[in-house]
Amino acid sequence: MNARDTVLARLRAALAGAPPTVPVPPGEHRRQGDLPPGHPELVDLLEHRLTDYRAEVHRVAEAAVADTIAGILTAAGAAAVVVPPGLPTEWRPGPVEVVVDDDLPADRLAGLDGVVTAAAVAVAETGTIVLDAAADQGRRVISLLPDLHVCVVRPDQVVATVPEAVARLTPGRPLTWISGPSATSDIELNRVEGVHGPRRLHVVLTDG
């Protein structure tokens, strides 16, 4: 018997005599929140939760996104940033060097000061943004190596609960769930922002 057959045979033997399986009852937990996606109160809650975990939040009109991003990058002293190929061109910050990711090597990405991406969905209750590697978010690595991540979220992407986000996401895509900047509590349980991932996270919440 090969290892696969052995493991499966052992597990089947372990279950021999067990009562026949019954389907899991659906359960009474919430599948969605009280407010529909994009509700202004949800966007407020998302802002509060993000801020609580040390992300910086900017509420701006859609037309002001590029200026807002430029302001964030300039204030942070960022000279060159990477963007995914599908980032809306009108979001590209003017005064900063913009490098469009084209399979850039990791060393090159690690030398850039920041990254600007869109998001796939955001969870208000937990203060989470999820990236799914679509064209406006790019490869996973580009939002990992630069030290500053600017992420633009539209109101229709904001859902109340985790189950709603799971239902919206496409299984099979590489997903990164982000809740605040990189952090650790490994030293005496003091939360320290910034270990290996981006040490600063800015979320730009647009009005539509």
């Binding site: 975990y53 996973r140 997903l175």
Partner: peptide, 11 residues
């Protein structure tokens, strides 16, 4: 935490 800083999923 309400959510840990990073969760990765790959297929």
């Amino acid at each position: 935490e309400r959510m840990n800083p990073y969760t990765s999923m790959w297929t």
